[in-house]
C-alpha cells in the first residue's frame, strides 16, 4: 500500500487533517501536522491495524526552516505493512506525545528530547535518559560541538548545616520515644 492509499483511508477518520505524501525509497511515508498526530496514530492503530510503534527518532536539518523532523516508524504485523510518519517541527516548536496510543513511545520520546531538545507536550517524564542528569545541551543537534571538554560528573559533596544536623537529631529522638 503506497502513501496515497493510506492517506485516502486515513483522511475520513481524522477530520480536518492535511496529510501529505512524501517520497521514499523503502515504504510509505506521510507528513502529519503536529496537531493531528495523536488522532492520526489513534486511527492508524485502531482502524488500519498498525499495532506496533517500532521507533521514534528525529533529525536536525539545521539551516532549513522547519528545523527538525520527528520520525515515527509504525508496523502492522497483521497486514505486513510498514509506515513512516514525519512531523515537521520548528526550532522552538513542540510535538504532542503519542504515549496514550503507544505506551512504547515513552522512552523513545524521552531520548529524542534528551538528544535534540524537542519538547513533547503532555509527556509525564521528560528527563535525561542517556546523558547524565546535569548535562547541558542536546548532543545530537547539528550546532552542538563534536569535541567538547567537560569535567566528569561527580556527586555533590554532602553539605549539612548545623541547624539541619540538630533537626535531624531531634527528629530521631522524637521517633524513638514513641
Amino acid at each position: 500500500m503506497d502513501a496515497q492509499a493510506i492517506i485516502d483511508k486515513l483522511t475520513p477518520l481524522v477530520p480536518g487533517a492535511a496529510f501529505e505524501a512524501a517520497s521514499s525509497v523503502d515504504f510509505a511515508t506521510l507528513y502529519v501536522p503536529a496537531g493531528q498526530l495523536i488522532a492520526a496514530c489513534q486511527a492508524l492503530r485502531d482502524s488500519l491495524n498498525f499495532e506496533v510503534l517500532v521507533e521514534v527518532t528525529a533529525a536536525d536539518y539545521l539551516p532549513r526552516a522547519p528545523r527538525y523532523e520527528v520520525v515515527y516508524h509504525l508496523l502492522s504485523v497483521s497486514k505486513r505493512l510498514r509506515l513512516r510518519l514525519k512531523v515537521r517541527v520548528m526550532a522552538d516548536g513542540t510535538v504532542p506525545t503519542v504515549q496514550s496510543v503507544y505506551p512504547a513511545a515513552g522512552w523513545l520520546e524521552r531520548e529524542v528530547w534528551d538528544m535534540f531538545g524537542i519538547v513533547f507536550d503532555g509527556h509525564p517524564d521528560l528527563r535525561r535518559l542517556l546523558m547524565p542528569e546535569d548535562w547541558e545541551g542536546h548532543p545530537q543537534r547539528k550546532d552542538y560541538p563534536v569535541q567538547i571538554q567537560k569535567a566528569a560528573q561527580t556527586y555533590a559533596p554532602l553539605e549539612v548545616s548545623q541547624e539541619q544536623f540538630q533537626a535531624n537529631l531531634e527528629r530521631d529522638r522524637v521517633k524513638r520515644t514513641h
Partner: peptide, 27 residues
C-alpha cells in the same frame, strides 16, 4: 533521502534509520 531496513537480530527487530544529504558522510 532516508531509509530504514530492518533485520531480525538475535534480540528482535534491529533496524537502521539513515538520512543522507547527498554527501560522503551520513547526516
Amino acid at each position: 533521502g532516508d531509509a530504514y531496513v530492518p533485520v531480525e537480530g538475535p534480540r528482535g527487530e534491529h533496524g537502521c534509520y539513515i538520512v543522507s544529504d547527498g554527501t560522503n558522510r551520513p547526516w
